[in-house]
Amino acid sequence: MSAKDKRKNVKAEAEIGFVTTISFPSVGSAGQTGSWRIFKPVKNEERCNECLLCWIYCPEACITKKLSINYDYCKGCGICAVECPRNAIQMVKEEKQ
């Protein structure tokens, strides 16, 4: 929910109906978690032999099975770089704007 949506509060002392703690599946449920990153994984396509270890080890499901990295949500933990048997992923310092 964006901050803008949050401001659209309903004055609700009359009948608010059935409100309980039910949530719905959503990508980016904790926001653009890519902003947590200090180091960024960068893939060297030539070295990669598509062993899929980075895919399965990524705690955040940010490396797809087709081995593209989603930087919107990648938190930069660095596991992919450490686990890559061919050193095909380097952690590079983020340049903050």
Binding site: G28, A30, Y73
Partner: peptide
């Protein structure tokens, strides 16, 4: 398990 969760970096 959808990307962009509230887990810490490197969460087991």
């Amino acid at each position: 398990f959808l990307q962009g969760s509230a887990a810490c970096q490197g969460c087991p």
